[in-house]
């Protein structure tokens, strides 16, 4: 990237670039940079977790301690938010957390791709969670599930309004869940790109302006730290909300 060319579009980083072209039934199913990083998210996390647990010693080393910490973190999240009945869903919750955490963190490496910045990906996951917990609730409670939309102890007059509100809030869940992650990733990465582009552009002017490029550069360093936090936090938020929805489905409030 050179100064004379001007800034790249800060959203160019989100472009999907096919690596292996593939199409089926008229649909483009190419293996893309996004697919590569989905694969890497699982590849890196599984490689780390498996190699860390290779010894499987009674007294864990540093790597094993880290792997166990991750496991315990998710296990505790499921235990405290869903309870004992959440046990069968633990592998899914763990997979979800690992996928999002490694996806978000790997996406912060320069020249990598952040698949969680794609609304279609986050929405697909949120929709899967939404449909999944709704099915679990219907299978477990049958028609009694619909009592979920009637708040207990509310005045009779307010009940029709409250039902409308509850139904809306229920159906908004997948939207808020997916948009939260997508928007955080989109905004964070765009901001990083803007500051990076600014630093490059100012330094491109040469001379004294080189010193001026330090300002966005320092800001970029700070923002990168913030984005690491956001990456971990959003993976956690997505996972814990999934746990809460699962808890609602299993226990109906």
């Amino acid at each position: 990237m050179s100064g004379s060319q001007g800034m790249h579009s800060p959203v160019a980083q989100f472009e999907i670039k096919p690596l292996i072209e593939l199409s089926f039934g008229g649909y483009d199913l190419s293996f893309t940079n996004s697919s590569l990083f989905m694969m890497l998210a699982f590849g890196v996390s599984a490689a780390f977790l498996i190699s860390a647990m290779r010894g499987g010693t009674l007294v864990p080393g540093r790597m094993q301690g880290l792997a166990e910490m991750m496991y315990e973190f998710v296990a505790e999240m499921v235990r405290s938010n869903v309870g004992h009945e959440g046990r069968p869903y633990f592998p899914f919750i763990f997979t979800l957390f690992v996928f999002l955490l490694f996806g978000n963190l790997l996406g912060l490496i320069p020249y990598s791709y952040t698949f969680t910045s794609q609304i279609v990906v986050t929405f697909a996951m949120a929709a899967f969670v939404f449909v999944g917990v709704t099915l679990i609730a219907l299978l477990k409670h049958g028609l009694h599930f619909f009592s979920f939309f009637v708040p207990a102890g509310a005045p009779k007059v307010l009940i029709p309004f409250l039902i409308v509100i509850e139904v809306i809030s229920y159906f908004v869940r997948p939207v808020s869940l997916s948009v939260r992650l997508f928007a955080n990733m989109l905004a964070g990465h765009t901001m990083l790109k803007v500051f990076a582009g600014l630093a490059v552009m100012i330094s491109g002017a040469g001379g004294l302006a080189m010193a001026g490029s330090l300002l966005p550069f320092v800001a970029l360093i700070g923002l990168t730290g913030l984005e690491v936090l956001v990456a971990a936090l959003q993976a956690y938020v997505f996972t814990i909300l999934t746990c809460m929805y699962l808890n609602d489905a299993l226990h109906l409030h």
Partner: peptide, 19 residues
Amino acid sequence: PQLDISTWPSQLFWLVVLF
């Protein structure tokens, strides 16, 4: 680029397969 729906089938397909 997120709103370019032509990339969605590929993303969804690989998300399902890889997940």
